[in-house]
Design a protein around this nucleic acid. Sequence first.
DNA 1: AGCATTCTTGACGTTAACGTAAATGTAACG
DNA 2: CGTTACATTTACGTTAACGTCAAGAATGCT
Lengths: 131, 131
Amino acid sequence: MTENVYTIREMCDEFDVTPRTLRFYEAKELLFPQRDGQKRLFTKRDRARLGLILRGKRFGFSLEEIRQLLDLYYLGDQQETQLAKTYEVAQKHLREMIEQRDELNDAIDELKEQLAWGEKRLKELRNAPAA
Amino acid sequence: MTENVYTIREMCDEFDVTPRTLRFYEAKELLFPQRDGQKRLFTKRDRARLGLILRGKRFGFSLEEIRQLLDLYYLGDQQETQLAKTYEVAQKHLREMIEQRDELNDAIDELKEQLAWGEKRLKELRNAPAA
DNA sequence: AGCATTCTTGACGTTAACGTAAATGTAACG
DNA sequence: CGTTACATTTACGTTAACGTCAAGAATGCT
């Protein structure tokens, strides 16, 4: 097998991000690539984390928020207090996400109505060209 | 009745934003308050638009994207080509929103699982205090 | 009239999330 | 061994969405 590690370029191509982004995420402690001398080697774990990061971004979470969420997904042998804190943070996030989804559903319905209306108007305009 | 117009302060209190924000939105042509001399007077239409703006923000849309969406909600007697263009933009937005909601649903499920797992771990830690 | 309050318009500051450029390192190719 | 191709660090630049501060106007209270 290919050692199961990935170069920065492979990561960039696969996830459609720039090297700058990956280095930035490492600086922010969202990713922890190993090193072969100078060069970064991203592990399977990094790939999983990057996937979660990018999805989190699509939901409008900040990188700092995402970093905290990642801790939940990758909580090893943390202290109880630390684990409990992370658990709280995640619960709050979950509530926000559910609320966001509900709102989003409403907005989708409204936009659909608007589109139906716009469609109707368009047909009218095409049938009765000039006023 | 109270003339059905609102001062900047009334708007700020009602929507929990700052004056700076409202002036900024006006500069960006998202709101069009009338004037009494120097002072801004926000109409019912502005209030409706502001509501849509703030909701759009919660979905992660940029102000520029929101501005285009607002055009759809308030399309008066636009040209057909213009209306058609706006219609396209809105359709694209709708697709994005639906996709976002679906992803969000998946993420919610995953996070719920994680939370259940974390909860279990917490119970274990509390019952078996020291290793 | 004096003073405080609230509005206004600049104009510069700030944060997040990278972009971009410069200087340097190194691995591989011919 | 030269150069082509990426990689690295350092550091300054950029955009969005406001915050903040300065310096006037207009309004209201006493």
